[in-house]
Each structure stands twice: as C-alpha cells, then as structure tokens.
Simulated scan of single mutants.
Amino acid sequence: MTQFNETELTEAVVRSFDQTPDTRAKFLLQELVKSLHDYVSKTGLTFEEWEYAIDFLTRTGQKCTDTRQEFILLSDVLGVSMLVDAVNHRDREGATETTVLGPFYVGEHKVTAHGTDISPHNLTGEKMFVQSRVTDLEGKPL
C-alpha cells in the first residue's frame, strides 16, 4: 500500500480530479480539497472530532425533506450564503447592500394598505414616517 504524508496526499487527491471534463467543476473540486485538507492540518483534527462532524452532517441530511432543506440553513448559520451573495455582487458601489433570506425567514410578508402602521401594537414611543424610492444605480425606478 502506498504511504502518503500530508502534502503528498493532498496533491494526489487534487490530481485525482485532473480528468474532470468541466473546467469550472474541476477547479472548484480541487480548491475544495486544498481548503479542506488545509483545515484538517491547521486544526489538528482528531478522529473523535471528525466522527462528530460526520455524525452532525449525517443528522443534518436526515432532517432534510422535499420541503425542508437543512443544508441551506447550515450555510446561512456559517455565513456562506451571505458570502456567496457578497462575492457575486462585488461591483455595486453606491447601491444598497444585497442580502439573502436568513434562517429566520418565515414566509412572505402580509399585504397591507399603503400607509399602514406595521409595528406591533403593544409598542410605545413616537411613530416614524418613512418615504422612499427604489431605483437602480442610475436612479431609474425599479
């Protein structure tokens, strides 16, 4: 059986994707391997910690159904969903920050008439009136 040290093992696994026909998929898989191997090396991950992680991912997958996707919620909790959004909207200087629905999203908003007070009715304090326009970067209404 071939023996590998940490560096040789990572290089061998990266090379195992060399024949991936889709260039982008090949790049993504090879970079994923490098990052995961680097994480394991940097943290000194133990067998027990790895087993715990695998069990956590297994249980997460077991919670998924046709209408419940726990991995996207995990992505939200780890900040990956927002990072993907930020990476894909880098060139938006002057625009309102983009966002994605987070783990606490509970469905579509309740339709209300223009000017409706949307605060909970048991709040005290002075009401605030907000008037706004939604436009693109050139000021054209959306």
Rank of each mutant, 00 (worst) to 15 (best):
residue 122 N to A: 08
residue 10 T to S: 02
residue 67 T to S: 05
residue 27 F to R: 04
residue 3 Q to W: 08
residue 51 E to H: 08
residue 17 F to Q: 05
residue 72 I to M: 10
residue 129 F to A: 06
residue 99 T to C: 14
residue 6 E to V: 05
residue 74 L to A: 11
residue 5 N to E: 09
residue 71 F to I: 06
residue 66 D to N: 11
residue 92 R to K: 08
residue 84 V to E: 10
residue 134 V to C: 01
residue 45 L to G: 00
residue 105 Y to D: 09
residue 83 L to H: 05
residue 94 G to Y: 11
residue 112 T to C: 06
residue 57 L to E: 11
residue 28 L to V: 07
residue 79 G to M: 03
residue 18 D to T: 07
residue 82 M to K: 15
residue 101 L to H: 00
residue 30 Q to G: 00
residue 85 D to A: 12
residue 56 F to A: 04
residue 133 R to Y: 14
residue 107 G to P: 04
residue 66 D to I: 05
residue 45 L to N: 03
residue 116 T to G: 01
residue 95 A to V: 10
residue 25 A to H: 12
residue 109 H to C: 13
residue 78 L to M: 10
residue 29 L to G: 07
residue 11 E to N: 12
residue 29 L to W: 13
residue 130 V to T: 01
residue 63 K to A: 09
residue 90 R to A: 07
residue 73 L to E: 13
residue 98 T to P: 05
residue 132 S to W: 11
residue 108 E to M: 14
residue 96 T to W: 05
residue 50 W to T: 15
residue 83 L to R: 13
residue 48 E to Y: 01
residue 55 D to I: 04
residue 105 Y to T: 09
residue 142 L to N: 00
residue 14 V to M: 07
residue 102 G to L: 05
residue 49 E to H: 10
residue 63 K to C: 09
residue 45 L to T: 14
residue 84 V to S: 08
residue 94 G to V: 11
residue 58 T to K: 09
residue 65 T to M: 00
residue 17 F to D: 07
residue 53 A to V: 08
residue 59 R to C: 07
residue 47 F to H: 02
residue 36 L to F: 04
residue 106 V to H: 03
residue 88 N to K: 00
residue 116 T to H: 07
residue 66 D to H: 09
residue 94 G to I: 14
residue 38 D to E: 08
residue 131 Q to E: 14
residue 138 E to W: 05
residue 87 V to Y: 08
residue 63 K to Y: 09
residue 104 F to P: 00
residue 90 R to D: 01
residue 11 E to F: 09
residue 22 D to F: 12
residue 105 Y to K: 00
residue 3 Q to G: 04
residue 122 N to P: 01
residue 25 A to P: 02
residue 78 L to G: 06
residue 141 P to W: 10
residue 142 L to T: 04
residue 49 E to F: 00
residue 82 M to W: 11
residue 108 E to Q: 14
residue 19 Q to C: 03
residue 74 L to K: 04
residue 12 A to Y: 01
residue 36 L to H: 03
residue 63 K to L: 13
residue 22 D to H: 06
residue 79 G to Y: 06
residue 134 V to K: 06
residue 10 T to K: 02
residue 115 G to H: 05
residue 71 F to P: 02
residue 112 T to L: 10
residue 50 W to Y: 15
